[in-house]
Simulated scan of single mutants.
Amino acid sequence: MKRFTPVLLASLVAVGLSCSSLSYAQTIKVLTVSQIRPTQPAIGDDEVNYKVATLQNDRQKLFEDFCKEMGAKGVKTFDSQSSLATPSSFSCLAAVGTDVDEVKSAVIAPDQHIYLTDGHHTVSTYRALANNHDFPFAVRITNDFSHLASMDVFWSTMQQQHLTWLEDPQGNTVTPAQLPQQVGLQAMQNDPYRSVVYFLRGIAYDKPDQALPFLEFYLGSWLRDHQPVKSEQLSTKAGYMTYLQQAASSLVAAQGDEHATAADDSPSLSQLGQRATVNKKKLAKLAEPGGKLSVLFNE
């Protein structure tokens, strides 16, 4: 895998992917994407694969979205040969970190590694689009925990501040030592319920403006316990659609004060944005030409 030296990273920041010294010093770090560490063991592979399929077919949107995620407003120049793995092959409208709020959040740990706290699916999507080659990526440092006494104290702090999800796709608790070393499809486990919840947004729940941390994982945990799915059911478009219909109906029919998990302190379904009725029009659109399931299954 290609490695970017600090000098090369600095040059990339100065050309095309530049950021102001003030923003960089205060909040923005640019590092190679393979150096970013996850704070959860799993992602929804189907969510990532859908996004990859969408961006593969629209290169304008690919570079536009990537530049925005870097806080650089949008794409300025690119061509048919441009690649995320070759930062000099495209340029953005503004310096990295210009729109600080657009940049994904991360923290610095006592081991000096940077741990992503938002954007695991986004990073995984871009890594897949770059064929897992390395490239520079910007993160917004919300907390510098490098001063903490140990990694044990760090992970305890992360849990207290709801900055990590230490549960595998089967609902089993994992230790921080069991987390993957990188973010991406090849490194992280697949949680099918996380993808299901992504597809059901605006259909069985509406994500609140001030959403609780790990809202999608909580809803996924509820579905795993109340509307379990067999993996083969999600292997075809028809099977996927049938399950989404069942999951949506189950979710809206549940009591709003029901907890998402067996833990008494877990949020209720109403706190997670549960809808009173299924948005059947939006649900049906998933399987229509150009709909998310049609794109996922390349139909």
Rank of each mutant, 00 (worst) to 15 (best):
S20E: 03
T77C: 00
T86G: 05
P41K: 12
F4K: 11
P38Q: 03
Q186H: 11
C19A: 15
T77M: 05
K29F: 04
Q60E: 11
Y240E: 03
Y126N: 09
K68L: 10
W222P: 08
G71H: 12
S18G: 14
A85V: 02
K285W: 05
H120F: 04
S270Y: 09
P38W: 03
Q255N: 13
S249W: 00
A262L: 08
Q182L: 05
T98Q: 15
N132S: 05
R3A: 14
V48Y: 06
D101G: 02
Y24K: 13
S266N: 04
S221Y: 14
R127M: 15
D168W: 06
I36C: 02
Q189P: 05
A14T: 11
G291C: 05
L234V: 01
G184L: 07
L283W: 00
L129C: 10
T157R: 11
A204V: 07
S221Q: 15
V96S: 12
F217S: 13
N57F: 05
N190L: 09
D45V: 13
L244C: 05
W165Y: 06
D257M: 02
R194S: 02
E102L: 06
S23A: 14
Y218C: 02
D265T: 11
F135T: 06
T122E: 06
A248M: 12
A248E: 04
K230L: 09
S82I: 07
V123M: 00
P169N: 12
T236R: 07
Y218G: 01
A130I: 09
V123E: 00
E47I: 06
L215E: 09
E102K: 13
F78A: 09
A85Q: 02
Y24C: 11
G71P: 06
L166N: 02
A247G: 04
H259I: 04
F297Q: 06
S231C: 11
Y193H: 00
L9F: 00
T27M: 05
L272E: 02
Q161K: 15
P38L: 03
S235C: 01
P180Q: 11
L116C: 03
A253L: 10
P208R: 01
D257V: 02
L234R: 03
K292W: 12
P87I: 07
I114L: 08
S195F: 09
W222M: 10
L293V: 03
V196P: 07
S270L: 12
G202A: 04
L163Y: 04
S266K: 05
A109E: 00
V183R: 01
F66N: 01
G171R: 04
H226T: 08
P289V: 08
E299R: 10
Q186E: 12
E232H: 15
K207Q: 14
Q112N: 10
S231T: 14
E299H: 12
L148I: 01
L148G: 02
V183I: 13
L9I: 11
A149C: 05
S249I: 03
Y24G: 08
R127I: 08
F154M: 07
